[in-house]
Design a binder for these strands. Structure first.
Lengths: 154, 154
DNA sequence: GTCCCTGCAAATTTTTTGCAGCCTT
DNA sequence: AAGGCTGCAAAAAATTTGCAGGGAC
């Protein structure tokens, strides 16, 4: 799976909603678009802020409710990245996170082997995956080599 | 690595503290012991509650501060298990979590292959691991087979 | 004796919820 | 027209912080 275009994502969302008699609202589309276009791993707060600079006001309550919904659909995934609040991102090709405790940088890792292995583990446990999140917390190469400058990767 | 005994854990904690000129207090030892003895994946709230039935009162502030510290030392790991607050557990042998979205059950998975793979990924990225957390969210075998009864695994 | 740690209390941050009216279907 | 969805406002839940006194070393 590659990063879906906004069109693909919207199609998938509409389908999910229609199937359950739910409504496709401008707020839901705006939030989906916002996360799709965001580089990095925005929090609910960041999504709300970003939207507030656009033409459509969306309340925090709706942002939270919609992010939950989008995770439900499988369009987004959610992780904490070592912080005390959630971060969201497009559920694109399978990737994992190395999070540096010193500088906060988030390194994305793509590993087909990891993907295969996770698939196998789920199969062995008769478990149907919706989403997954691997976070490895530690110290990145820069920080291990003495470069301590803050360089937040998100 | 296997689950450390309380003695091993205490030794490791004392060493960590001594090295940094920090104090080894009864509160810190009590919290460490509490997590060690807890079956499952307690939250800060649960630790505080549990302690309050013992002889030593420990404030929430101290519970939060100490859990942070214990994660720092590498004695505990922290994950959200799909919820909006943190859960803690002993950093024992490498294992991952399958979390059922329907019944909340947490299935622990041990995979030497996964461990090797994660080690390799870290090495390739010149990344020094402190802790890690793999959460796979989906539907467990029971729930997929129509058994919807609530059966929280913690 | 030094200075780290604790409890307290309050503040902050993050997430959830009830309700009345609006909007999608 | 029906009923899901939104904003509002408030509540709840989770986490952090400043400070004065107590305790570890």
């Amino acid at each position: 799976m590659v990063v879906p275009t906004y069109e693909e994502a919207e199609r998938k969302l509409r389908k999910y909603l229609a199937l359950r008699g739910l409504r496709c609202t401008v707020e839901r589309l705006a939030i989906l678009k916002e996360v799709l276009e965001h580089k990095g791993h925005p929090s609910a707060e960041e999504i709300a802020l970003q939207l507030s600079s656009g033409p459509l006001y969306v309340s925090r309550a709706t942002v939270y409710r919609t992010l939950d919904l989008l995770v439900e659909t499988g369009l987004l995934t959610c992780s904490t990245l070592g912080e005390s609040h959630r971060h969201y991102e497009v559920h694109a090709d399978h990737h994992d996170h190395l999070i540096c405790r010193s500088c906060g940088r988030v390194i994305e890792i793509r590993s087909p082997e990891m993907e295969k292995l996770q698939d196998r583990i789920c199969k062995e446990n008769d478990f149907e995956t919706v989403s997954h999140s691997l976070e490895i917390i530690g110290y990145c190469s820069r920080c291990r080599n003495g470069d301590q400058r803050e360089n937040k990767g998100d």
